[in-house]
Design a protein around this nucleic acid. Structure first.
Lengths: 357, 357
DNA sequence: ACCCCGCGGGAAAGGGCTTTCTCTGCGGTA
DNA sequence: TACCGCAGAGAAAGCCCTTTCCCGCGGGGT
């Protein structure tokens, strides 16, 4: 790799001058030398060593982001919002996937700290895990003590800036909608119970039901991975255990899509025989058939706000912004059926698998 | 930020010793000193400055990846494959989105070079653009000249290692399938014509049709963005121009989903009135209704192979691996309808928009 | 004619780490 | 006892860049 002194030597100038030309420093350089340096850069295909630059410069520019999984549309949307603001300010984003592994999350905090990021954003659910939360907070505090800025999205554990989707209100909206449609026997396809997102959404749902004098017994909740296959499996278990079900709330849209797949396999018509409500309103929700009724979260905006907080002026008091959820009525939630033909749902209809050629 | 010398001072040892302990160097250190250093590290919450390390160490460890958009499932799957191999080898991945902007792609090559990545992987379609291709090749050549490894996925422009999905064969499979089902009037919902992926897939399709003595006139092709909305719009234009259509090939699954949305809006039954074949077999393909018949590409494997090539031993001759496509028959492609009721398809049926509360 | 100022350029000091080289002091061998 | 070798620790030389500090020189003011 060509270095700055290679360029300087070739141009017949000192490294200092070469550096000044390359970085468009305010210090004036005569046109002739400038030309020579630029020519040398082009000939040698010189690219400054970013690590040396970051070491020599004092100010930190990159921002670290830890999400559960960028390829999950929920985080993809949030990340889009983060990117937008970061790009506007000429910041580089370092995105890390924790894959919902708390240990990996801790490691990434260290890693990003080591990479001298100016700020750190943690997106995704928190964990009901005392020990982990304490460790994380220690690490974040240590980072903040050295001037790093931190914001979290959708998790309460951190004491600093936070942007929160209103998960509880969203759960409440889903519950109220189904109650309004007359549903009394509602099952829940939930994410891992260790995630605060799961419990927050459940709490809102529970509140809506209890306002109608109904409760949500644990046997009508199935916990599984927060993805399509988790939703499909949980739905199957729910149906097996409770054939009376007239509605299912899935705690995110991926799980809802899995639920729809299971219902289709079992020949249950949505929403005629059973209703489904999802959560998040990810882009695909409108494209499944029937289109998914779901709770919309302003995902992109969540990212925009978090990045703005973290790159904005430092304020004494930590800021917590709660962004509202809203119900999006599409085609998977309908009135409770007059009488559910119990026999139909007990017998899974075989569905032809994919054929591949 | 605490530095190594802070740690050393606190432990009462030299920076050299501290470094050796922290990096588990092969040089022996007495247990007592080791203890002291470790204690100091913990107390100071010391994290090594990654940039200083990369500067001091000679060997490069990170790998750079340039994709069009990680949140696009096509690239998300490829990236999953890349990650898997990289993680196994303890490599950090730097992932950059070019958003299909050639200039940004060029910039990212520089950026990653500046970050001293050990290897560079470019995934996604190439461009039919002489000037750009030449520039890119120059930059890549310069990088390789300094010991960098390069591999491309799904693009021909680079002369070195490459992993290619068999786009042409995939297009052929889609065409043959529809011909076999009796379709004669086939429309194509295509991505941007500047992308080689588009033209390769089209070429295969064209070949399949011509083997049946049919051709694929340009008026039955609509080029649009390679995403859901592009597919929806292109399908609308296609239907308006050619009501005789009995089948549509979408050149990727996102576009196919857009196509299905448009067909649903217009009240056209799939596959009874019109068939649809997608491309890529992204995970959501099996979950739309009807489930999408599509051409499967081994996306994860594409990533696995590319990373393996680039991290494996250097060989004199550049390697080109072509990974096969296969047809996945689901529910969107059926036999050509006996007689198409032309009137039905000319009149778009209004569809209720989402209602939000 | 002299002094001072300011401009354009270079020398050199870091920035935080790794690693080679050097040094000290110990145990073992002849 | 004298010498060699080696283990374990530190000193110091980079890695590549930025930036401050300093110096020489030419032009304007008096």
């Amino acid at each position: 790799m060509a270095t700055l002194s290679d360029v300087a030597r070739r141009a017949g100038v000192s490294p200092a001058t070469a550096s000044r030309v390359i970085n468009c420093s305010s210090k004036p350089v005569t046109d002739e030398l400038r030309e020579r340096v630029l020519a040398a850069v082009a000939e040698l295909q010189y690219v400054p060593n970013a690590h040396a630059q970051l070491l020599a410069r004092s100010h930190r520019s990159a921002v670290g982001v830890i999400v559960h999984d960028v390829s999950d549309p929920y985080f993809a949307e949030i990340t889009r919002g983060l990117q937008r603001v970061a790009t506007d300010q000429g910041r580089l984003l370092m995105i890390c996937n924790s894959y919902r592994d708390p240990d990996r999350e801790l490691e990434y905090v260290e890693l990003l700290r080591g990479h001298q990021v100016a700020a750190l954003i943690l997106a995704g659910s928190g964990y009901h895990d005392e020990a982990f939360t304490r460790q994380l907070n220690e690490k974040l505090a240590a980072y903040e003590a050295t001037g790093g800025r931190v914001a979290v999205i959708g998790r309460h554990e951190h004491s600093g800036d936070a942007v929160m989707p209103d998960n509880r209100a969203g759960g409440y909206l889903a519950g109220r909608e189904l109650c309004g449609l007359g549903h009394r026997v509602i099952g829940v396809v939930a994410g891992p119970r260790i995630l605060t997102t799961t419990t927050d959404r459940l709490a809102g749902l529970r509140q809506a039901l209890s306002e109608q004098g109904r409760d949500l017994p644990e046997r009508r909740i199935r916990y599984a991975e927060f993805d399509r296959d988790g939703g499909a499996a949980a739905t199957a278990r729910l149906l097996d255990a409770d054939p009376e079900l007239t509605a299912i709330v899935a705690l995110n849209d991926s799980m809802a899509i899995g639920a729809l797949a299971t219902l289709r396999t079992r020949g249950l018509a949505v929403p005629q025989q059973i209703s489904v409500v999802g959560f998040d309103d990810m882009p695909i929700a409108r494209d499944v058939t029937p289109a998914l009724t779901t709770v919309r979260l302003p995902l992109v905006h969540l990212g925009v706000r978090a990045m703005s907080l973290v790159l904005g002026a430092e304020v004494p008091a930590p800021r917590v912004e709660v962004l509202p959820a809203e119900l999006v009525r599409r085609d998977t939630a309908g009135p409770v059926p007059p009488a559910a033909p119990v026999t139909a749902r007990a017998a899974p209809r075989a569905r032809a698998g994919d054929t591949v050629s």
